[in-house]
Design a protein around this nucleic acid. Sequence first.
RNA 1: GGAGAGGUGGCCGAGUGGUUGAAGGCGCACGCUUGGAAAGCGUGUAUGCGGGCAACCGUAUCGCAGGUUCGAAUCCUGUUCUCUCCGCCA
Length: 432
Amino acid sequence: MLDIRFVRENAEAVQKNAQAKGYDVNINELLKWDASKRQLQQQADMLRERRNEMSASMKGGKPSEDALREAKIVKEELNAVEASLKEAEATFTDLLKKVPNMALADVPVGATEDENVVAKKVGEPKHFDFEPKSHAEIADLRGWLDKERAAKVTGSRFAYLKGDMVMLQFALIQFVMSKLSDQAFIDEVIRENNLNVSNKPFLPILPPFMLRTELYDAMDRLEPRDDRYKIEDEDLWLQGSAEHVLGSMHADEIFTEADMPRRYIGYATSFRREAGTYGKDMEGTFRMHQFDKLEMESLGLAENGLEEHLFMVAIQEKLMQLLEIPYQVLMKCTADIGKPNARGVDIEAWLPSQNTYRETHTADYMTDYQARRLKTRVRRADGSIELIHTNDATALPLSRGPIAIVENHQQADGTVHVPEVLRPYLGGREIL
RNA sequence: GGAGAGGUGGCCGAGUGGUUGAAGGCGCACGCUUGGAAAGCGUGUAUGCGGGCAACCGUAUCGCAGGUUCGAAUCCUGUUCUCUCCGCCA
């Protein structure tokens, strides 16, 4: 949620920004409700003041009939004003929640994701002297995947992973957790990219996979709800990304400045209904209802937020380079960064079977937009309190990460060459 | 799932209808004291909203949501979380 004071002072820019991001909001109407809400609040405060005065004068003794009568009138007036106030607040909050976060100045303006801008390409797509297979074909050949039985048990977009595909996934988890919690690795990424950020390593987290409606909504990740799985008879939803449960864990807390930033590397099985994607990406495990993901989350000071965002992208790139996967980096345009985002970067991995780059990572910088509703704050050294800035980014998606590895490192016979950095986590094996 | 107890400020903890936004203690900050430190003494120390250049003023908040009352941290209802015991269970 935006700061209403900011909206008041920058109404035109806020309206324009919403338009660029493709959200239909009416700032003038929001400001009308803001004004009437404030007016009602002042009325209510005055009536409460009167009520408090009267009740204070009554304490102890037996109040006179007149005093009681007047107090009752004040009470009735207050009840009426409070009812209107409540309504105005509900409408106001509803409208304010719909206003998307302001995009940073360097975010390209665009109406669809086709207007995302390629910032750079790293790594040469490998030339194969045979027809490269898709990950699904390789998995099929090697007995790594059973979607037919999954369909019997759970329906479409689920899978049983088997054998070395499972070993590969666990190796990747170990690899990423080890790197992100390692001081030397963090220092190296900072140095190589000339970043001015804290060198605190990430704390590994295994979070709950469900969260309450209120916190999901405060993260601004609940909508559209038809892409989420709701737990029947509970006020709980399955998370769609570890971000949802990592970012909300410090709701309603005030950090000390010295404690910033908080960096987490979470591992979670994530769930998405993929509403509206019928028929797309049905081959293999590219788009599933359930997929595991390693996710970075960082809570920190406002002035470090953007650099932290760049730091996370640098980590994503470093991991891709270590895994020897060619990729490109996209600056997402206004239409694609998402409602709570101020800036967004995607990484797309080269998939030989599709002869193109496909999305594997995303990095999101939300400024204080999420923190405002989460009430996650920091007490500065001078005693003042302000909202923190949130950043999240994929460290490695499990399904699309393994897909990229299998496809890019495949050999003519359907075996897969293991990137050197993963071998320690696979018992030294060079080939899967 | 059943029975019971309880959620108060950074922490501990008092408080069962009326200057209680909240005693007392701890912690923290500043000052005094000291050669220096400890101890001691003094002062200060929650968050949101509205108003004001500001000092500050008003208002709300004692898990959350309702209700009773002139007045609620205190009474009533619902709900949620924690703890103990029983049951079940990886």
